[in-house]
């Protein structure tokens, strides 16, 4: 599409019946009543998505709630390299590393907490991860909660999805 010049019609002088506004108000009332009736009779015109029950399909690149990936044997794929925690601009990732029971893997995260109240959903952690252990492709928003503690997601929550 080329950039064109759009002609905007200048407001013209109002004719006398228009300047009385009475007819125009009645026309406006007709418009609103039309919307009201059509929305009562058939609800197609309503654009609202009823959020918790109905979810909008998120585009694939949407950065939603984090999740941690698992290996085939079910252990977390994360090797506690701290790359994500370092890359995080909001400093919301807390990792405590431990020695992995699996001899092929050096370390594993004993704790892996993401403070969702501080997370800015920038996706840097996903970029930084060398072994594709953290992803933000759940398509979920952070759900609301009533205490701050519940919004610090631990490793168990993050592994669930």
């Amino acid at each position: 599409m080329t950039i064109g010049v759009k002609k905007v019609a200048r407001p013209r002088e109002m004719s006398f019946p228009e300047s009385l506004y009475l007819v125009e108000i009645v026309k406006g009332l007709g418009v609103t009543m039309g919307h009201l009736l059509s929305n009562i009779v058939r609800q197609e015109g309503i654009k609202t998505i009823e959020y918790p029950e109905v979810r909008r399909e998120m585009p694939p690149r949407f950065r939603g709630r984090h999740r941690l990936m698992k290996r085939e044997n079910g252990s977390p794929r994360c090797v506690a390299c701290y790359c994500c925690a370092t890359a995080c601009p909001a400093k919301c990732i807390t990792i405590v590393a431990g020695e992995s029971p699996d001899p092929a893997v050096e370390k594993y995260p004993v704790r892996f907490d993401i403070d969702m109240l501080r997370c800015v959903f920038c996706g840097m952690c996903v970029e930084a991860c060398p072994c594709d252990a953290i992803r933000m492709d759940t398509g979920w928003f952070t759900p609301p909660d009533d205490t701050r503690e519940k919004l610090i997601f631990t490793i168990d929550t993050l592994l669930e999805k």
């Binding site: 919307h35 009201l36 929305n39 009562i40 609800q43 309503i46 609202t48 009823e50």
Partner: peptide
Amino acid sequence: KGAAYIQDRR
């Protein structure tokens, strides 16, 4: 409710 229906909301 009326406002919502007039404005195509629920």
